Measured scan of single mutants.
Amino acid sequence: VSVELPAPSSWKKLFYPNKVGSVKKTEVVFVAPTGEEISNRKQLEQYLKSHPGNPAIAEFDWTTSG
């Protein structure tokens, strides 16, 4: 189950709350306009370098507050 949070234009930000008793931590995933899922800052940096014209990296908020 995921919750969609505010994201930069043409992107989606999905929040996957951890299940009770789960060892997996809460996860935030950005979905690029191409449909590619980005789950960490390093991936995001690589994606933005190879896909010019996207929002600046500073516009991506990895917190769950939206």
Rank of each mutant, 00 (worst) to 15 (best):
V1H: 13
V1L: 12
V1P: 13
S2D: 06
S2G: 12
S2T: 11
S2I: 15
S2L: 09
S2H: 12
V3K: 08
E4A: 09
L5K: 06
L5N: 05
P6A: 08
P6F: 07
P6T: 08
P6C: 10
P6W: 10
P6K: 08
P8S: 04
P8K: 05
P8F: 04
P8A: 04
S9T: 13
S9W: 08
S10Q: 15
S10C: 15
K12W: 04
K12M: 07
K12A: 05
K12Q: 11
K12E: 07
K12P: 06
K13M: 02
K13V: 05
L14Y: 14
F15L: 12
F15N: 05
Y16E: 03
Y16A: 06
Y16W: 09
Y16F: 13
P17V: 14
P17W: 14
P17D: 08
P17Y: 15
N18C: 14
N18L: 10
N18V: 11
N18F: 11
K19Y: 13
K19W: 13
K19T: 12
V20K: 12
G21C: 10
G21E: 07
G21L: 07
V23D: 15
V23G: 15
V23N: 14
V23F: 11
K24C: 15
K24F: 11
K24W: 11
K25Q: 12
K25A: 13
K25R: 13
K25M: 13
K25N: 14
T26H: 14
T26L: 12
T26E: 13
T26D: 14
T26M: 13
E27Q: 14
E27T: 14
E27K: 15
V28S: 01
V28M: 05
V28D: 01
V29R: 07
V29W: 07
V29A: 06
F30R: 01
F30V: 01
A32C: 02
A32Y: 00
A32F: 02
P33C: 02
P33N: 02
P33Y: 02
T34S: 07
T34N: 06
T34I: 00
T34H: 02
T34R: 01
T34E: 03
G35S: 03
G35K: 03
E36S: 03
E36A: 05
E36Y: 03
E36V: 07
E37F: 15
E37T: 14
E37I: 15
E37M: 15
I38R: 00
I38T: 00
I38N: 00
I38Y: 03
S39N: 11
S39R: 15
S39P: 06
N40I: 03
N40A: 05
R41I: 15
R41E: 11
R41G: 09
K42D: 14
K42Y: 12
Q43W: 05
Q43D: 14
Q43A: 10
Q43I: 07
L44S: 00
L44K: 00
Q46W: 09
Q46P: 01
Q46K: 10
L48A: 00
L48E: 00
L48H: 01
L48T: 00
L48S: 00
K49Q: 12
K49I: 12
K49E: 12
S50V: 09
S50H: 10
S50C: 08
S50K: 11
S50L: 12
H51P: 00
H51R: 03
P52T: 06
P52W: 03
P52F: 04
P52L: 06
P52C: 03
P52R: 04
G53I: 04
N54E: 09
N54F: 03
P55G: 05
I57T: 05
I57Y: 11
A58N: 12
A58Y: 12
A58C: 11
A58P: 04
A58R: 09
E59C: 10
E59I: 04
E59H: 06
F60N: 01
F60E: 01
F60H: 01
D61M: 04
W62S: 01
T63D: 10
T63V: 06
T63W: 04
T63H: 08
T64F: 11
S65L: 10
S65A: 12
G66C: 12
G66F: 09
